[in-house]
Design a protein around this nucleic acid. Sequence first.
RNA 1: GCACCGGUGGUCUAGUGGUAUGACAAGGGCCUUCCAAGCCCUUAACACGGGUUCGAGUCCCGUCCGGUGCACCA
Length: 574
Amino acid sequence: MSETPDRQEVVELAKRRGYLYPSFEIYGGASGFWDYGPLGTSLKNEVVDSWREMYVVRHGYEEIETTTVGTEDVYEASGHADGFADVLASCTDCGTFFRADHLVEDHTEVENADGMPKERLGEILAEEGVACPSCGETLDDARVEEFNLMFETNIGPGSARPGYLRPETAQGIFVDFQRLKRYYRGSLPFGVTQVGRAYRNEINPRQGIVRLREFSQAELEYFKKPDDEIDIAPVEDVEVRLYPVDEQEDEDGEPFVTTVGDAVEDGVIDSPTIAYFVGRSQEWYESIGIDPAKLRFRQHLPDERAHYASDCWDGETLTTYGWIEVNGVADRADYDLRKHAEHSGEEMGVFEEYDEAVVREETVADPDMSVLGPEYGGAASRIADALREKARDEPGAFGGDEVNVTVDGEGYTVPVEAAGFERREVRETGENVMPQVIEPSYGLDRIVYSVIEHSYGTDTVEDEERTVLRLPPGVAPFDAAVFPLVSKDGLDEHAREVRDALRDAGLRVKYDDSGSMGRRYRRHDEIGTPLAVTVDYDTKEDGTVTLRDRDTTEQRRVDKNEVAEEVRSVVEGV
RNA sequence: GCACCGGUGGUCUAGUGGUAUGACAAGGGCCUUCCAAGCCCUUAACACGGGUUCGAGUCCCGUCCGGUGCACCA
């Protein structure tokens, strides 16, 4: 396990070296908002690139980009408008927050307090003399306020139409589902990804970059038939640390390490598809520098599941903030598509053809209303309905000259010719199914922060302590640094040529000729640059440069014409 | 949101009412043949807004930000 760093030192380094900046710092800042500096942006881009490499490139889960502002309909359908808009009552004596509707329901005769306006809830609390469950003081002067975690805005001038900043990127994919289903030519399963910002107006975010009001998500919505499961074979041997509900509820319960294959076989993870994405997540985390000893997957307890999820496994990393959630693999079932189908009236299902068409016999009645109408007057249409029902359920009743039905306790006898009874063959080639959704969703900011913490370390080089970010070469902000041994005798010009050659080869390179060699090595150790290329007097003689490794500090000589390939083979892990 | 503590150059820091100390870092120059060397010069701070006072980094109030605990986290 990597050492546990001092958070102050990590945050200080991140700010000082250009990884993370508090937003609007010159105006005092605002909690829950952080900017990425040049190095942070580069690191985050590398992390996002490798995420895309995994899902978009290797799995073919193509990426879309949807708006960050959504209309009210979207979030009414998704449940966020209600789910996010709790009425909170805060005790003026001890400051504790409570759900006002829960207080009213639990402590008075009033039922169905959910959805009551805040004014009414406040009145009830005062009238009924409800006491604060925390300190016992009466809540007659409690502050009762609606708090919606979604940022609200207006679409167009005035306040005609409310809009919300999206609280997750997922809804954009669900809302576009009909188009996406046509894009994938109507066949399940398929996956759609999105990377982007989401917004939650947290009550009091205080954990640095771990709890943000504006944050970046990378989400995959994997749409499948109810009994489709991804084959776990590619990840069955991947070792994962799991913390299922049983272990969490058991006093002596502990997370344990197993393989994805065994987790499915032993029924620890019900859904092979969820297990597959847990395995892929594990592999990906290790590739970007998350310490596997500080990584686990914890199953949500039933009462912490989101309103849409039937099962959920969270990836968690151990940081100086404790275990923090960095991703969730949630079984959203058909919740979202069903809700959007209901609210929009649109068909969200996918037509699935059977392997073989099913042919079955159907019995139907098509009553002749020109006979029934004049004969039975006002009862005619109900009699017709009864005939249709009878044709379906009791076809034998149509065998004679007449058929009897009962409507509202009164019997009617109808000539069988008027019933329009028919036996016919029906060929069913398939059915509409509502896709089930498995959603792996990643919190990029927390992941980037975890990578920084897990990479942070100190060691001793030549009796001097140094700070080093042991970032995997593939995600480090710079691929290499280029130094002239001294900035005279033409070595500096030579070094700039080497820099330019590396840049032409598509590598991210920083040139540095300030201070001593040792100082430059330290600078780049601290920001995690994996390799340093030094141009010295021998370069002029034999065309070789030294290539110095960040982690071992070992050096070797490489021909300057081959240095680009050498660097590339390290950063690409070949 | 409540309570307590804190906020001085990029970083760390001295400063108990009289125009802010030092170090490191950074930039320029000299020097320099591979792991924070040396010399010269330079840049650069009292979180913000009020108040008390002849005078406020210092005392008071409010706000913002951070830390810790409580609460919140669909």
